[in-house]
Structure formats: C-alpha cells, structure tokens
Design a protein around this nucleic acid. Sequence first.
DNA 1: CAAGCTTGCTCAATCGATGAAGCATGAATT
DNA 2: AATTCATGCTTCATCGATTGAGCAAGCTTG
Lengths: 341, 341
Amino acid sequence: MNQVKQTKRTTIYDLAELAGTSASAVSAVLNGNWKKRRISAQLAEKIMRIAGEQGYALNMQASLLRREKSHIIGMIVPKYDNRYFGSIVETFEDMARARGLFPIITCTRRDPELEVEAARTMLSYQVECLIATGATDPDRITEMCAAAGVRSLNLDLPGALAPSVISDNFAGARELTRRILKNSEQRLGRMEPLLFIGGRGSDHNTAERIRGFRAAHADLGVSVHEENILACGYAPEKAEKALDERALGGNALPKGMFVNSTISLEGVMRWIRRSGHLDDRSLVLGCFDWDPFVTLLGNGIEMVRQDVPGMLNKVFELIESGANKPVLIQVPPLIPQTQEA
Amino acid sequence: MNQVKQTKRTTIYDLAELAGTSASAVSAVLNGNWKKRRISAQLAEKIMRIAGEQGYALNMQASLLRREKSHIIGMIVPKYDNRYFGSIVETFEDMARARGLFPIITCTRRDPELEVEAARTMLSYQVECLIATGATDPDRITEMCAAAGVRSLNLDLPGALAPSVISDNFAGARELTRRILKNSEQRLGRMEPLLFIGGRGSDHNTAERIRGFRAAHADLGVSVHEENILACGYAPEKAEKALDERALGGNALPKGMFVNSTISLEGVMRWIRRSGHLDDRSLVLGCFDWDPFVTLLGNGIEMVRQDVPGMLNKVFELIESGANKPVLIQVPPLIPQTQEA
DNA sequence: CAAGCTTGCTCAATCGATGAAGCATGAATT
DNA sequence: AATTCATGCTTCATCGATTGAGCAAGCTTG
C-alpha cells in the first residue's frame, strides 16, 4: 500500500497515466471485455496489476450513468422484527446477488407516506425493478414505477396493477384451523369454535385467512359467531386489548385461538400470562407464521410457515419472464409436523 | 397522467424544453437552491408544475457523479434472523434518514468473503461511511475503506483500526450471571456454578462475556470449572451438540446456564425439550440478548437487552464528530426487571 | 447620461466510465 | 508494388445533473 493519503479516489484516468495508456483501454480491461476490444493480454495484465496496487474501485455512479441497465433491484419491506420478513430479506439478497443484481432494501414501518417516499428514492437510484413487500398501498407504488418505466411486483400482499406473489392464505388458514380444531377436540374432548385474532380486516391476507378459518369450521360442522373474529391490527398491544374487551363481553372466551401473526401472538401470550391462563393446558393455539421460540413455548402451538424461498422463486421467475400483467400467484405455505408438548 | 409509454426517463432537458427554459434553471429549481441562483418565483413554480405533471424523478447517478458528497451511508450486518440485528437495521435506517442520509444495508451471513465483497460494492456506490456490524474481519474492511478515503466504523464487534461501538459485554455478562446465580440459589436452595454456552471463543464479545461470567462467580465465591465454558459457535445445532457431548462427559450438567445469544438459546431449548427437562422448574436460564418470546417461555429466563438506540446514537455522534481514531465505546446494556414465571 | 448595481437568466465545463469510430502499424494476399 | 486485412490501440461524444462564469436588460445613483 504505497498510497498517499488521498482526497480524490483513483479513477481510470489515473490508472491510464500510470500504465501509459488510455482511459478507454483501462475501462475495457477492468470491465472484462478487453478481448472484444482487442487489447493485448500483456497490456491487460499490466492494467490489472496497477489497478490492484492502487486499490482502484469503480465509480458505480459514473458507470451506471453511461450504461443502459443499472442491475439494481429494490425492495421495500414493512418491518425487520419477525422471522418472516427477516427471511424474505435475506433470501431476496441472496437470490438477487446470484443473478448479478444489486439489492437495495428499505424498511417502511407500515407507513404509507414512507412507502411512497422510499419508492421515489429507489426510482432515483434507477432500480430496474421494485418489489413492494406487504405494502399498504401497492397500487400507488406500481403507478409511480409505471410512470418511470420501471417494473414492479407485489409480495406478501397483492395489488391490482402489478403481478403479485402471496401465500395461499385461504388454504393455509383452513388447514391451520382444522388442526387447531382437531387438537382442541383431543384435549377438551369436544370441538368448540375458535377465536380468530390479529391482522387488519381490510387487508387481503387477513380477509382470506378469515375465509379459510370459516371454511374449516364449516368443514367440521362447527359454527362460528361473528364476535369470535377479532381483526384488531398487528401490534401486540392491540391483541392484548382486544382480548381484554372480548373477555368482558358476555360470552366466555374460547379455549382455542387462531392467531394471525407472530407479532399478534406476542400480545396473546402476554394476555394469557397476565390473565393467569399460563399453565392452562386446555388452551389450544395456532399461529399463522413461524418462529422457532413459539415451538418451544410448549403448548403444542400449531404454526403455518410461509414458503419464503418458494415465493421469491416465483418473484424472480416473473421478473425474468418479463410478465407485467397483474396476475396473482398463491404459494402454498408449509405446515410443519405437529409437535406436541 | 397524459404520459406516452416511454422508454427513456424524463430528464431536466426534457423539462427545460417543455418550460421554454434552460436545463440549469430546471436543475436549480428542482434541487431547491433556486433562490441562490436568482430564479424568479414565477419560473420556479412553472418548472415545478411541469416536473410534477411529467412524473419527473431525479437521476441520482448523474447527480451524485457531479456532486462531491453522496450522502449514502452503508451498513453490513451478519443476519436478519434475530431481534437484535433487526432492531439495529431498523434504527439505523431511521437515524440515517433523519440526518438526510440514504442508508444501504446488506447481509453478509457471517461470511468473511461476502463481507469484503459487500464492502467493495458499497465503495463503488460511493458510500461516505461504512458501518461494519458484527464483522468477522473488521480491520480488513477498515483498510479497504481507508484506501478509498472512506470513513468506517465498527458496531457490535470491535476492530483495531477504526472507532468501535459495542455493548459493555463484561458488565452485562457479570450482572446477568449474578442474576442467574441468585435465581438458582432461590430455586435450588444452593448456589452452583453455571454453564456458559454459545458464541465463539475467538470473538471479543464472547471473551468479554466469559470474563464477566467468571467475575460474577468470583464475586459470589463460586468457582467455575473450565469444562463449564462451551463457546461452541452461534448456530442452534452447535449448542445442542455441545450439550449432548458435555452431558456424556462424566460430571453432571449444571442446572443453571448462561446462553450467549437468542440463536444459541434456540438450540439449548431444543436440547432441554429433547432430553426431557422441559418441565424441570429447577433449570435456571439467562440469555445475553433479548427476544419477546423468550420472556414467554415461562422459565423466568433472565435476559440482557443490548441498548440499540444508545449504540447507534454513539455511532452517529462519532460520524458527526469526524473522529477517526480507533476508540472503543462500550454502551451499557439494559437488563429488564426479572419476570418470574 | 454614463457608470455601476441588481435581477434573472443561459452557457459550457465537469464528474468518471463507456464504446463507436477511427488511426497507425505490420502482415498477408494479389 | 499495391491493396487488403488484422491487430492494438486512441479519440471523442455521451450519459444527466451541477455550478462557476458570464451576459443582457432594467434600475439607481452621482
């Protein structure tokens, strides 16, 4: 490292001077198409050696400005506070890199303003494609992208204007509900209607899961009352509060519950602990989403694990196929083997 | 949206033509310093209207190429699979944006090659500063950044060449150990040496935590044998395997354990379940890291919660102060109130 | 009324990398 | 010997935004 403490970064012009050649030769060598440009192997080697010595790093801004494609792919994601989104982000980065794309990701905290702001910034960075994960207003983002000639896709929550890849929420919820009901029958000796808790009634996934929840009850000939459906939002406190209120209102609380996310499950578990049901082995729970610690909570809680690699494979398939029509692809979630406590 | 389906994105030249003015006026108006450039309010308004109509989005690549500062700040992070890193990333994004910086984050899966690769890419994107979180080889990254004249900082794991912000692992571990020992005394009626499990003996944090672990034992007059220290790595399977092996080797397993991360705790809990200790209320656990579900596991598991906002505040203070010397800042972790099951 | 100032803009160079077009040089072909 | 061809480079315009310099028109001021 015989480097002087420098203010300016090394450019191809510096390298050209050091190598006694032209910037365009340096460029050709460093971006790998020097054979096409008929640069001799000798010069190529020299340039690469000097670039190495100088610790040269490409100025991506300049390079991207000149090139037609940015190879940047953007994703917006609501939160990093659960395994589902964590695994989406990790898998996405991996798959993007495997395809020679540079992933940029930003977290928008379920805030519609931030979503739009983030999308605008990503467009400024010339993303070739933007994936809106769990977006509050996916169609707004699709419109912005369309206006900039950029492709967009929805993940986790569907939109009407762009292709969407989501879990098969109906089938997953139906199977999960069936399992909770079966467990409930086994433990209580009878089958009682369950409580559905968490999520927003206005979002597609929650609506579909409620539909699956109802269908499974119908399949088994159990009828569910409307007051057993508490789409109270995602935050743990909201679930806690909803349970408190439901407990006050006349009818006894069901012993079985379908919890709509791990985040809501936090609230449910807190409520259970607080209200003294902690060691009540007759409580039968299921959660639409997966977390390793939930398995260990020891109540034999059933979980649905969304198939993140499967979903992202579909996403990249769509990207590569160039499809733009607003199709809806539903990926079946994985339902792990029941683990009794 | 009277937009023709366009291939090219709208540029300031297009807007200039539409507004009957020059590109430089458009630029001045759109980047907000039109007052300095003495553009009339009338023209400014017209340009902004047209930009809005055309859905103009700045080409950041071009803009950054010309400007001296990129306002991009990079972070590399090992994993997204736990609350600690999730919260680091979320808080970092937030604080960066609050300072007018554009955060880019990438996950390197504890892979030294990927770390270097990611750092190189970030340098290409002209980051002004790179934060290496939990890096395997932070000094290598610092060197790369220094060669490019870019400032770098270490977070979570310290390096020798750049300022580092980490938790006060020694103090945190000492207090956590003290609490586990006290709980153990209370539940078992006597104080026995604990088992330390998880992490890499070679990493600074694990070493410091082991030091705190030993100090707390010494404080309370309990002596720990070497075979009670299992720095077996972070992955859950490694913790499980280490416990299996330790269980085979002669001496009985301690009833109290200091688990070095939530990830290792997954393995420990799995082992506990598998080996039939699940309902053994005499098991006394503590975990260096926080997860909401761990509270709910119901064994009164003590946790240390690292002070993520506190650490990131220090990080940004360092960035803003311009300090470059390799100081080591240790932020005290938060130790929540004990919650008995 | 000339000199100087203010206002409101435009011109043109620039950031660094890229690649089409072009220019020597020497070898091969007619 | 004249022409063609291949090889190995260089020159220069370009991507889109930014900004110092400069210019014209109107307005003051002595």
